[in-house]
């Protein structure tokens, strides 16, 4: 029942060509379309993605000289085929640049935008995409995992990707920790256990945000954690509340309670 309610809200952002906008009324873009494709197992959304692939295999949005690269996330949503293989080639060949546009020493992870630093969430998607769809890319998988190890906050979990800043230990966030756990589960149990512990400590503090509570509920369910039930209850309360919801947050909510979560489960 809850899945149906969330799904109906999510479909309001669907555009006439089968894609999804970031919110209702926005034009289609790869990221919200991929998230909706995963959450609703929407064939129209998958078809839109295939059509949206760029000649170099990537998926994303260009803003002047900045390219917002959603290729790894889209790989998780694509079925087997030429489009997926071309996109995976792109994921394998791209990496974060950790010294202002230069490679610098490893690890690199994956950036939000081409040529930028590697951050937690895009690195999690890169790692998840290769683990699930191209496990032969062992060097990049190892680099992605090393990146998440390097960026782990004290005591476990992740924020956007900076565990220390100017001498101060930065705390983990719920949303980034939850997303990263999908990438580390089944490959580094110690790292995953610490992250799950952090998520268990934090999620109630950030439960006012739909994206936070939805990602937490999804991660708890994925990992069979005892907080899955309470997090689902909190998710239902937030869904019913006044907070505006964007497509990615609603998609995570649908993943938390629906059948799409299997696509994010590797190992």
């Amino acid at each position: 029942m809850v899945f149906d309610v969330i799904g109906a809200r999510l479909r309001r952002a669907k555009t006439s060509d089968g894609g999804y906008g970031s919110v209702v009324g926005a034009g289609p873009e790869p990221e919200p379309t991929a998230m909706a494709a995963l959450a609703l197992r929407d064939a129209d959304a998958v078809a839109w993605l295939v059509d949206a692939q760029l000649p170099d295999g990537s998926f994303g949005t260009r803003a002047g000289s900045v390219f917002s690269d959603d290729t790894a996330l889209v790989c998780v949503a694509l079925p087997s085929g030429d489009a997926l293989e071309h996109a995976l080639d792109r994921v394998v060949s791209t990496a974060g640049s950790n010294e202002r546009g230069q490679p610098g020493p490893p690890p690199y992870g994956w950036p939000w935008t081409s040529g930028a630093y590697g951050w937690t969430e895009p690195t999690a998607w890169g790692l998840l995409a290769l683990r699930s769809k191209r496990p032969s890319a062992t060097a990049r998988i190892a680099d992605g995992l090393d990146t998440l190890v390097e960026r782990e906050c004290a005591g476990g979990g992740w924020n956007y990707g900076t565990p220390r800043s100017f001498g101060v230990a930065e705390p983990p966030f719920v949303q980034t920790t939850a997303v990263a756990l999908f990438a580390t589960a089944g490959v580094d149990e110690s790292l995953t256990r610490r992250g799950l512990g952090a998520l268990g400590r934090l999620w109630r503090q950030e439960a006012a945000g739909l994206l936070s509570v939805a990602t937490a509920a999804a991660a708890f369910r994925r990992l069979g954690h005892s907080e899955a039930g309470p997090a689902n209850d909190a998710l239902e309360r937030v869904i019913a509340g006044p907070t505006e919801a964007d497509t990615v947050a609603l998609a995570w909510a649908a993943l938390a309670v629906g059948p799409g979560l299997a696509a994010l489960s590797v190992g």
Binding site: T61, V66, G101, P111, W112, W119
Partner: peptide
Amino acid sequence: GRVYGWPKNALHW
């Protein structure tokens, strides 16, 4: 952020 990321690192760089 959905274009520039979190943080908006491309702008800082």
